[in-house]
Amino acid sequence: MHSFINFIMGPMVWISFLIFFIGVIFRFFQVIKLVNERENFIYTYMSFKYSFRSIFAWLIPFLPVSTRKSPVFYGISYVFHLLLFLIPIFLLSHVALLEESMQWSWFTMNDAVADILTLIVIFSLLFFIIRRIVVPEVNFLTKLSDFGFILIVALPFVTGFLAYHQFFAYQWMVIVHVLSGELMIILIPFTRFFHMFMAPFTRAYTGSEFGSVRHAKDW
């Protein structure tokens, strides 16, 4: 048991990140190859100025009209995406592990704060599930895999929360926590999770077309 835990908390972390990085590079390589072969006009229309204009406009909460049409979903979604990165990166126990093994260390957040933020993430995911069921136009678009994505994101947060509070089966919680975290990292390049890398580029292209060709705003 101990050697298994050591494996998933040691080499498996590196393996996961390795697969993640190779996957990301592979996916970008694929897309760039396709652009070069079929749609190299994209380079002609891409504009730095309008790409960043569009990306920044879409990063400002509630600036785009679209986000004001669904303020609750958008607000929750905005906070959720931020926390998705902030919590794991600045969690004391994560940083402590890194310090132990790699002597890397940085700012950490208070455990009580992390606890509340984790609950916010979990409730956001619950909200997403309910929204997918209740809102007809979203339900129509929803596939089983969409719930799968939510589940994969929820697992590390739920198990992390339970493990921290040591409610029950502590060791199993830690194991599932670590494995599901690694699973998510591995899956990012190969699933629609990849939108975290691709979205800035699709936004940039549309922003460029709107800005430099159409002389119009795209938010």
Partner: peptide, 26 residues
């Protein structure tokens, strides 16, 4: 007849439904 745009669009849409409010036909 398609390329990167098509592939990326299909693979990136998270089916959030925010596009719905844009459409006057909807």
């Amino acid at each position: 007849e398609t390329g990167a745009r098509f592939k990326v669009y299909v693979e990136t849409c998270m089916r959030c439904g925010l596009c719905a409010d844009a459409c006057s036909i909807f």
